[in-house]
Amino acid sequence: MWIANSYGKINLGLHVLEKLPTGFHRIETGLCFIEWSDRFEVQPSEAYTLNLSEKSIPTDDSNLITKAYKLFDRYIGLNRHYSFNVIKNIPAGAGLGGGSSNAALTLRILNKLEEAGLSKDELIDLGRTLGSDVPFFIKGKPGIATGLGHDIEPADIQPDAWIVTAYPNFESSTAEVYQNCVPNPDHDFSIKGVLLEEEIDQWQFLLENDLEAPVFTKHELVGNIKDQMLEFGASFAMMSGSGSTVYGVFEQDFVAINAYESFYKLGFPANLTRPNFEPDNGIYRKD
């Protein structure tokens, strides 16, 4: 059996710059990791099987793990098949990239177990059709995403601070949120400039997520959680991606722990990420 962790992400700001004729959007966003993760257990099998601890999530061809598995088999080929047992912790439809992270790890696991020898760039080329965040998770480093979100420029933007992430117990539709967003090509500040040049205590005044407005209009609770993060003492708070999860960046550990515990007691699934967190991207053999 082989084991590995599939980590979530948050967006440090998100600018929707332009809607393209294809219906997709040109964006700019900062991407970094949180400690919220799913656990993969993979072993050889007579046929592909996928078992998820969260039974409400389908395991058919709509699942990104299944899509990634079949994509690898179609274009690279498999010498044998594998069963996947995945303990799901990252909420679905939460703006944390759980599905894309799962797809990226599936490709990396198959590349290792099949000894296919694909480079990260080759895996990215293979997986970019699976989701805009898949290249980020294959790279495994924080960075600035531009274009459709596929183009990742590595950048040292993992916060040197605690991150508290809270999920409001409902999903947000990415397609619907983008449909109700008004693109803005002329922001006052670039996300890259703010993240690389400004201190965390300035982010609240300079960073924006253009997708917050349509989500807050429909789901007042999401905006309330953001306000609560700030009231708990966050230096910066924002919705991640297209929602529905909200995170706060805290510079003092006891303040962050209090916020995390408070959200947990209120019934919101929550996560606490350490300063300068680096995900463990290893794939380990379990004897």
Score class of each variant (00 low, 15 high):
M1I: 13
G8A: 15
K9F: 05
N11V: 01
L17Y: 08
L17N: 05
K19A: 07
G23E: 09
H25K: 07
I27E: 00
E28R: 03
G30T: 03
F33L: 04
F40Q: 07
E41R: 11
Q43F: 15
P44N: 13
A47G: 10
S56N: 14
I57C: 08
I57R: 09
D60R: 11
T66K: 11
T66F: 10
T66D: 07
Y69K: 05
Y69S: 04
R74H: 13
R74V: 01
L78V: 02
N79A: 13
Y82H: 09
V86Y: 01
I87Q: 14
K88N: 06
I90D: 00
I90T: 04
P91K: 09
G93T: 06
G93H: 09
I109C: 03
L110R: 01
K112V: 10
E115Q: 15
G117C: 03
S119A: 11
E122T: 03
L123R: 02
L123Y: 06
L123D: 01
I124A: 08
D125W: 10
R128F: 14
S132I: 02
D133P: 05
F137G: 00
P142A: 03
G149Q: 05
G149N: 04
D151G: 02
D151C: 08
I152L: 06
D156Y: 12
P159L: 00
D160A: 13
W162N: 03
A166D: 06
P168W: 00
F170G: 12
F170Y: 14
S173C: 10
T174E: 07
Q179I: 12
C181F: 12
V182N: 15
N184R: 14
P185R: 11
F189E: 11
K192M: 04
K192L: 02
E197A: 08
E197C: 07
W203K: 03
Q204M: 03
Q204G: 01
E208F: 12
E208I: 12
N209S: 09
L211H: 10
P214E: 10
V222A: 00
D227A: 08
Q228D: 09
L230K: 11
E231S: 13
E231L: 12
G233C: 07
A234Q: 00
S235K: 09
A237Y: 00
M239E: 03
M239S: 03
Y247T: 01
F250N: 01
E251M: 13
A256V: 09
S262E: 14
K265W: 09
L266M: 14
G267K: 12
G267A: 10
G267R: 13
F268P: 04
A270W: 08
N271P: 09
N276L: 12
F277P: 06
P279Q: 06
G282R: 15
R285G: 10
R285Q: 15
K286D: 15
D287N: 15
